[in-house]
Design a protein around this nucleic acid. Structure first.
Length: 510
RNA sequence: GCCAGAGUAGCUCAGUGGUAGAGCAGAGGACUCAUAAGCCUUUGGUCGGCAGUUCAAAUCUGCCCUCUGGCACCA
C-alpha cells in the first residue's frame, strides 16, 4: 500500500542552519507526526544539497576538499534534526551515489528522448566572482565594482526543453487548483506562466565547475543546480526500483516561498512529465520569519541560531512557538520576547503549572493514585462539553494546516482546566467532613488528569517529548495513534500512580 | 510598472453579511494546591482612507494610501 510521503526541501550546504531551516523541518515533522497519529503509514524525507559553485568556492576558501566540507555541514543539519526531535525516515545527500545514479539516469533518458539539446549559451561572465551575471545585476546600467571585469561570452551548453511544456503545465494547474497550498500561490504561478518560458540551461563546463554530477552523455560538463537538487525527491525513494511506487508520488513537498517559482512549480513538474514520472500531489508553501520586524539576513547580522534557542527553551517549546505563531503560508515575526512570552504564559503557566498542581494535590493522597470520578455536576459537565467541541475542531484545523488556530483552540480548553480547579478548589474540599465534598475533591483530580491526558494527545505531534513526560507523570505511555485516545474517558487513568512533582518548563531568567 | 500578500485594541493576531474577539501588556479584587503561578472583574478599537451595493459590511464592489514579497535560470 502506498505510504503518505512528505518531504522538506533539501538545504543548500553553504552555511549553518538558521531559524528558517529549523522551521521548515518542524512544520514538516508536525504534519508527518499528525499523519502517523491519524493512522497513515508515513514516510518523511529531508536532506542536503551539496553540489555547486558556492560549495566549491567555500571549501576552497577553507582549504578543504568539497566533500569534507559537506560532511561538516551535513553533520550540523543532521544534528539539527535530532535536536529538534525531527522524525525523518531518511536524510539524503546529493553527493551519495544512490542520488547521482538517478540523476544520471534521468538525464540520459531525457537526452535519449530528445528533451535535451546542445546550443550556445550567451551571457555576461565575471571572472572575479566566477559566475554568470544577469541584466538585473546591473546597477544604474553598469556592472558593480565587485564583479571586476565583465565579459560577454558564448559557450556550449545543454538545454532542457521547458518551453514546449508550458501550455501543458498551465492546463494542469488550472485543472488541479489544489496543487499548491495556500491557493494564492497557485495564482502567482499562473501569473508567472503568462510570459513565455525559456528553455533551461542545465550544464556548466567542467573547467569552471568541477563539483557536480557529470552529464552521462558528455563528461566535459556537470549538471547544474535543479536537475541535481530536485531529483532528490525520487532518488531517495528508489526511483527505478520496485519499492518506488510504494512512496511516489509524494503527497507533499514542503517548501519555502522563495523556491516555488520557478523551481518547484515549473521546472519540477515539467521534468517529471517529460520523463514520464507522475507528479507530486501537492506543494505546501510556507512563509518566512522576520526578526523583530526586519528581514533575516547575514548582512544585518540578525540570523538566529536554532541550536541556541533549543538550548534555552528546549526543543518542544521551540516547536510549539514555531507552530503557534506561524500562520502557514504567511510570514511571521520572531523575537526573543515573543518566544519567552509563549514559553512562560502558554507553556509554563497554563500547561506545565497545571500538571504540577495535579501532582502536588495528588501527591497528598495516601496512595498517590489518580482517583475515580464519581460525580458529574455542572462544572464537570462544562469541561466535558468543551472538550467535545474542542477536539473535532482542532483535528480539522490540523488537517487543513491551520496549526496556529488548532493550538489556539486547544489552549482555550487547557485554560478551562485551571478555571475548573478554581471552581472546585479540591484543596479546600479535602478538608471537609462531608462525604459529598470528598467525592467532589477526588472527582476534581480525576478531571484534571483527564484534561491533561486529552490535551497531551493533541499536543503529541507538536511537542512529542513533553507529551511523553506528561503521560509518564500520570503513569502512562505516550500514544502512537489518535484512535481511541481522543474521546472523553474520564476514568482512563484512574488508579495510576502519580509521579513526583515535575516542572515541565522551568522559569527562565533573562 | 505588473502580480500577490498584509493593513482589526499599546503588542502579536483570530474573525468572509447580522449588535467588534483572544492572548499578552495595563487597572482592580478575592484566593493560595501550584513554576510570585492560577481565578474573577475591568480599561482600551472611527476594523488603512473614500465612495458604493444591502434592511444590515471588518466581511461584497470600485478607487486611493502604506508595508512586504515576486517579476525567470539566483540556493
Amino acid at each position: 500500500m502506498k505510504q503518505f510521503y512528505i518531504t522538506t526541501a533539501i538545504d543548500y550546504a553553504n552555511g549553518s542552519p538558521h531559524i528558517g531551516h529549523a522551521y521548515e523541518k518542524v512544520l514538516t515533522d508536525v504534519i508527518a507526526r499528525h499523519r502517523r497519529l491519524s493512522g497513515d503509514s508515513t514516510y518523511f524525507l529531508t536532506g542536503l544539497d551539496e553540489h555547486g559553485q558556492k560549495v566549491q568556492q567555500t571549501a576552497r576558501k577553507e582549504g578543504v576538499e568539497p566533500i569534507d566540507y559537506c560532511d561538516q555541514i551535513a553533520e550540523k543539519f543532521q544534528r539539527l534534526c535530532s535536536t529538534l526531535l525531527i522524525s525523518n525516515d531518511d536524510f539524503i545527500r546529493t553527493t551519495q551515489s544512490r542520488h547521482k545514479d538517478v540523476v544520471r539516469k534521468i538525464l540520459q533518458d531525457l537526452f535519449d528522448k530528445g528533451e535535451i539539446y546542445k546550443a550556445d549559451y550567451q551571457g555576461f561572465y565575471s571572472k572575479r566572482q566566477e559566475q554568470f551575471l544577469q541584466e538585473k545585476d546591473k546597477v544604474n546600467g553598469e556592472w558593480p565594482e565587485i564583479f571586476g571585469e565583465v565579459e560577454e561570452v558564448s559557450e556550449p551548453a545543454y538545454f532542457f526543453k521547458l518551453n514546449q511544456y508550458q501550455d501543458w503545465l498551465i492546463k494542469h494547474l488550472k485543472e488541479s487548483d489544489d496543487f499548491i497550498f495556500p491557493r494564492f500561490r497557485q495564482k502567482q504561478v499562473l501569473e508567472f506562466l503568462k510570459e513565455p518560458l525559456n528553455d533551461l540551461c542545465i550544464s556548466r563546463p567542467k573547467e569552471r565547475l568541477e563539483w557536480g554530477i557529470p552529464l552521462p552523455f558528455d563528461e566535459d560538463f556537470v549538471c547544474y543546480v535543479w536537475f541535481d537538487a530536485l531529483t532528490n525527491y525520487i532518488s531517495a525513494v528508489g526511483y527505478g526500483t520496485e519499492g518506488f511506487a510504494d512512496k511516489w508520488p509524494a503527497d507533499f513537498h514542503v517548501i519555502g516561498k522563495d523556491i516555488l517559482v520557478p523551481p518547484h512549480a515549473v521546472y519540477w513538474p515539467i521534468m517529471l512529465h517529460a520523463a514520464g514520472i507522475p507528479l507530486p500531489k501537492s506543494l505546501l508553501v510556507h512563509g518566512w520569519w522576520n526578526i523583530s520586524g526586519e528581514k533575516m539576513s547575514k548582512t544585518l547580522g540578525n540570523v538566529v541560531d536554532p541550536f541556541v534557542l533549543a538550548e534555552q527553551v528546549g526543543p518542544d517549546a521551540l516547536r510549539y512557538f514555531f507552530i503557534r505563531e506561524m500562520n502557514v503560508g504567511q510570514d511571521s515575526d520572531f523575537s526573543a520576547d515573543l518566544l519567552l512570552s509563549r514559553y512562560k504564559d502558554d507553556l509554563g503557566n497554563d500547561f506545565g503549572n497545571q500538571l504540577n498542581r495535579l501532582l502536588s494535590l495528588g501527591g497528598k493522597l495516601p496512595n498517590k493514585q489518580i482517583p475515580q470520578a464519581t460525580i458529574e455536576e455542572q462544572p464537570e459537565k462544562d469541561v466535558r462539553e468543551l472538550w467535545e467541541k474542542t477536539y473535532p475542531q482542532v483535528i480539522e484545523y490540523y488537517n487543513g494546516f491551520l496549526f496556529h488556530r488548532g493550538l489556539e483552540t486547544l489552549w482555550a480548553f487547557i485554560r478551562k482546566g485551571n478555571a475548573y480547579l478554581e471552581i472546585r478548589q479540591p484543596w479546600k474540599l479535602a478538608k471537609s467532613e462531608d462525604p459529598a465534598d470528598q467525592e467532589r475533591a477526588r472527582t476534581a483530580l480525576a478531571y484534571t488528569a483527564e484534561i491533561l491526558r486529552l490535551a497531551s494527545v493533541l499536543l503529541t505531534p507538536v511537542m512529542p517529548e513533553i507529551s511523553k513526560r506528561v503521560f509518564a507523570a500520570m503513569g502512562a505511555d505516550s500514544i502512537t495513534n489518535y484512535e481511541g485516545n481522543l474521546e472523553w474517558d474520564i476514568n482512563r487513568f484512574a488508579g495510576n500512580v502519580l509521579g513526583e512533582r515535575t516542572i515541565l518548563f522551568p522559569r527562565i531568567e533573562n
